[in-house]
């Protein structure tokens, strides 16, 4: 077979496998969120479909597909349909640059467990995820509903403000790793757990964590869909599968955020005090283990997000803006400056 055909086949297989994993995972987070929420609240949660309710996402999916498609009479039809489509597309794109694990050997060639190893990986992801706000804006505006519009306005203001803080917090990480590639950032943290950026950059991590919590529209920053005042915010007028698309993309964003935390601050697929390369395992087994480690770490942060959501109250719009601009932004700048000075001296 021609070399380039194999290359294309491998890329195709990776793309399909990764997106399959992400979509399935997002669907199961909906179940996980509901089950964990019930445990926090002394309830049982959905446990009827299959054992432990494991078929619940499937049942939900079927339900959403069977529902009647309702488009509000005064909505702008084209944009109304564009909103969720755009949102879910943009939610999936960052996964092109996120590495799931180390390398494996397939058909005699080394394959990175990553769709593409961009040399500007992180920059690409941030750039793409900023477009995500259009999915919300368009959906909220096109529904022709005041609650949706308020939700969309809040959401865009929030995303734009917190992106700045997030970017500055990340700049400090780039200074240390000297690269924008996701893979290089992980490899720079590989030596020992003390090289993990969470210990090197504790302040930066806090700023980044809060910002990404705001970026994903989760409690305590879920103002865009603040249920108690805005009903569900920007997707109030969406039903059936279009609603499912919004929900699914929010959960995909949640996984993306967790994966970012893992790879930027918690050493990616590295296991503390164990060097996978020196254990004498076959390359493929080591690669598989690295994938599992990455997924476990990411899963843990997904759990943390769920935990926070069901524990904390919600901020108010002005308080959110104050926190972003008056507290987090100066902290991020101080952190960047400090890191720069240290990096210059050491």
């Amino acid at each position: 077979m021609e070399e380039w055909i194999i290359d294309i086949l491998i890329s195709l297989a990776k793309t399909l496998a990764f997106f399959g994993v992400i979509l399935l995972w997002a669907a199961y987070i909906t179940l996980g969120e509901r089950r964990f929420a019930s445990f926090f609240q002394n309830r049982l949660g959905p446990n009827r479909a299959g054992i432990f309710g494991l078929l619940q996402p499937l049942a939900d999916g079927i339900k959403f597909m069977m529902k009647e498609e309702i488009i509000p009479k005064n909505a702008n039809r084209a944009f109304y349909l564009l909103g969720p489509t755009l949102f879910i597309t943009i939610a999936l794109i960052p996964w092109a640059a996120i590495p799931f694990g180390d390398t494996v050997v397939i058909a005699g060639r080394e394959v990175k467990l990553q769709i593409v190893d961009l040399n500007v990986g992180i920059l690409f992801m941030i750039a793409v995820s900023s477009i995500g706000v259009y999915g919300i804006m368009i959906g909220g505006w096109a529904s022709n509903n005041k609650y949706s519009l308020l939700g969309a306005i809040r959401s865009s203001a929030q995303l734009i403000s917190y992106e700045i803080t997030m970017g500055i917090a990340l700049a400090a990480v780039f200074l240390l790793s000297g690269s924008l590639s996701t893979r290089d950032i992980i490899i720079a943290q590989m030596q020992s757990p003390w090289h993990w950026n969470v210990f090197v950059q504790p302040l930066g991590f806090i700023v980044f964590f809060v910002s990404i919590l705001a970026e994903t529209n989760r409690v305590p920053f879920d103002l865009a869909e603040a249920e108690s005042e805005l009903i569900v915010g920007y997707h109030t007028e969406y039903g059936a599968f279009k609603f499912a698309m919004y929900m699914l993309s929010e959960y995909i964003n949640l996984i993306t955020a967790s994966a970012l935390i893992t790879l930027l601050y918690f050493g990616g697929w590295g296991i503390p005090f164990v060097d996978l390369g020196r254990l004498g395992l076959s390359v493929n087994l080591a690669g598989l283990i690295s994938v599992i480690v990455f997924l476990v770490k990411t899963g843990f942060f997904v759990f943390v997000f769920i935990w926070i959501r069901w524990t904390l109250p919600r901020f108010r719009y002005d308080q959110l803006m104050n926190l972003g601009w008056k507290i987090l932004l100066p902290l991020a700048l101080v952190n960047l400056f400090g890191t720069a000075v240290v990096a210059l001296l050491v």
Partner: peptide, 16 residues
Amino acid sequence: FANDIGAMSVLLYGFI
């Protein structure tokens, strides 16, 4: 009241 402010779990604690 807690639910109105966004702390959703407290509702259930009160109800138990």
